[in-house]
Simulated scan of single mutants.
Amino acid sequence: METIMVYLENMFAGLPKTPEVEHLKQELLSGMEDKYLELKREGKSENEAIGIVISEFGNIEELTAELGIQPVSAEEAVPVLTEEEAYAYTTAKRNAGFWIGLGVLLCASGVAFLIFMDTLFDNYATSAANRSVETGAVLGLIGMFVLIAIAVGMFIHSGMKLERFSHMEKGFQLPYTLKMSIQHSRESFALTYRIAIITGVCLCILSPVFIFAASSINDNYASYGVSAFMVMAGVGAFLFVYYGNIQGAYTNLLEKHQLTVEKKQEVKVVRAVEAIVWPLATAIFLFTGFVYQRWDINWAIFPITGILSGSFSNVYHIMKSKNPS
């Protein structure tokens, strides 16, 4: 049966990826499956059944001519992805997820280090030792910028590693056997992905506990709780990015080439909004913390931003569905 599916994939490789063609393909596959099973019940061997099915259903030109479906031209044809290219892509996405996730963790740790050092010197400095307070802020800033600089280097490194696969944005095809192999890999990874996401969510939800615990001991210790909150949330973000990138690689290979132009535009708009909203949320978090000393409640900025970001994505999708351009 797998031979028949491979043959069918090859027959439709030169046709446009439209709903009409996909519907025709599914109808042919269903008919071929029924015929194959019928021949097997009659006692035909595997090779005999496959040969008869292909001979009876193998002429796709007449069907496409009747339906007015034209093969794609050489300029419009998309390349077929090889097993080596698919493996290299998933490996690159996995590595990029690790470095980007680690970079996010370093950024969060940098902010945590700044808050920790500033609070440490502020709490233990006497009123006459203002220099100690300034030293804490300076050391915290130096540590934060060093960590952020390392993180930015990781982001750039990851982006450059993925540039070699930019041609995949124009579309590609997967051989049937390769598609089934990737599908199996995604199914095997599903449990690991779910556990990682659940763990990351739990870490983010539990991270504010450090703020409450530190505040309950002493109001001056609230900032220490914020530092722990940032690090724990950073670990959660690392899990999201790393395992999300692996899952995203499988999704891109299996589904991305089937996305419509409208869906691709929707993804670009949502990503553009997120690129503005999250840095803005971080800036508000730091401003309200250092200027107004509201570390006890300003952590809520991040879950609120996450809810608003998800809501925007859903609203945009609904509006585009109601008003197609």
Rank of each mutant, 00 (worst) to 15 (best):
E255N: 12
L259T: 13
M232Q: 12
W278F: 10
E255G: 05
A228M: 14
I205A: 10
Q258E: 08
Y242I: 08
I276C: 04
Y243A: 08
F240A: 12
D219R: 14
I217R: 11
Y221W: 15
M230G: 10
S216N: 12
A213Q: 12
S227H: 03
V235M: 08
E274T: 08
G248Q: 00
H257D: 04
T260G: 08
A228V: 14
W278P: 01
P279T: 07
A228T: 13
E262W: 01
R271Q: 12
V226D: 04
I246M: 05
Q258F: 02
V235G: 01
A228Y: 14
S223D: 14
V273C: 05
V231L: 02
V235A: 09
L203D: 06
M230Q: 12
L239G: 01
I211W: 04
Y224F: 12
V209C: 08
F238V: 01
N245A: 15
N245L: 13
L280A: 11
V270Y: 00
P279N: 00
L253N: 02
N220I: 07
W278H: 05
G225T: 05
N252T: 08
V267W: 06
K264H: 06
A214T: 12
L239Q: 00
G236S: 00
M230L: 15
A237P: 02
A228H: 08
F229N: 13
C202I: 14
M232T: 15
R271Y: 05
L259C: 13
E255T: 10
N218T: 05
D219C: 05
F210M: 06
A237W: 06
D219V: 07
C204T: 15
F229A: 07
F210Q: 05
L254T: 01
F212Y: 15
V209M: 10
S207W: 02
F240L: 04
Q247K: 15
A249G: 07
G234V: 03
S207L: 02
N245D: 05
N218E: 14
N218P: 03
V269W: 10
K256A: 15
A222W: 06
V273T: 03
E255D: 11
S215N: 15
Y243K: 14
Y221S: 11
A228P: 07
E274L: 11
A249Q: 00
Y221A: 10
F238D: 07
C204H: 10
G236L: 00
P208V: 04
F240M: 09
S215W: 10
K268I: 11
Y250H: 06
T260N: 03
S216R: 07
K256H: 10
S227T: 04
